[in-house]
Design a protein around this nucleic acid. Structure first.
Lengths: 163, 163
DNA sequence: CTTGATAGATTGAATGTTCAAGCCAGACGG
DNA sequence: CCGTCTGGCTTGAACATTCAATCTATCAAG
């Protein structure tokens, strides 16, 4: 009985799709950084961190959950926090209820800064991603990206279980 | 007459889509690197460079075109070539017909190496991207990613005009 | 010719990310 | 209690990428 072995190479359709996807995957991050840096002096990862905090009660979140939300390692977040802390946009402190947890807080200055950075950032996202797509394609993209994200091992809820 | 101003914020649907897309965009590169590094000692960018060369006549291409194909800057490529050259997988030389062009060539050792790295790489791409999707979704993704890539300013033909 | 301008490519310094090691507080078992 | 273990976080060094400066070969103009 012939074992059905997984098809080894990509066919033409898959090849074209892969090429287009990988182009987006490599160009989108630099495009986001390029838009944020001139006016706001932050990169996209730092933007995500601050935006994540701004939506939390007390604009505060534990490092671990923040890292998960921003799709980054704890180490990367820690370094980023050091930079943001030096600029006074963010603050770290021990969780009073549990001394081994660290919580990150967005300062007022940080809040002002992210609020001023947001509009042009959002409109750039819109221009690059949503404007070129039809409503049906946007809906299709949600499902497609979710499936790939799942195959990559992404957690279902970006904030994870917050006890 | 009310000017139709561009909608400032993302609605729920767009938000979910953006979240899923950005998760893919941030996780896919590290997943590709993680798969390649252990067995092959290269990152995805270096893989793309060598794979691109392997498909050219004489396994040779000019630096500029190679950079375009690999979605990277000339500087990034130059640094990568230095690393690959030190391992003997690639070679640089001046184009005899035009002394200010540099051509990159994949060596036999480089060819062997990329050939041995390819199967597991491709099957990982398949597992992460194509297996989770239906044929209709793959086809939709091609169009969607192409449109976004165009909005990001990607050239139509990844090899560009090669004179 | 000679000069200037420009495209292709390289280089080194600055910046950001990853990786591995280490630190500290609390939980757990004796 | 006391020691060990573990999870959360930080740190510094190694590595890759970006950015700006530089170099070189060609081309165009005078």
């Amino acid at each position: 009985m012939a074992q059905s072995t997984p098809p080894p190479w990509l066919d033409d359709q898959e090849r074209r799709t892969w090429l287009a996807l990988i182009t987006v995957v490599t160009m989108l991050p630099s495009a986001l950084d390029a838009q944020l840096a001139p006016g706001s002096d932050i990169n996209y990862f730092e933007y995500t961190v601050m935006a994540g905090l701004s939506e939390q009660p007390d604009r505060t979140l534990q490092m671990k959950h923040l890292a998960l939300f921003a799709n980054g390692s704890l180490s990367r977040l820690s370094h980023a926090m050091t930079r943001l802390e030096q600029r006074g946009w963010v603050r770290r402190g021990k969780d009073p209820t549990n001394g081994r947890l660290t919580v990150a807080t967005l300062t007022d200055e940080g809040y002002d800064h992210i609020v001023s950075a947001a509009p042009s950032h959002v409109s750039e996202v819109r221009r690059m991603v949503f404007d070129p797509l039809t409503p049906a394609q946007i809906s299709a993209l949600e499902e497609i990206a979710s499936r790939i994200a799942a195959a990559l091992g992404a957690p279902d809820d970006p904030f994870g279980p917050i006890p």
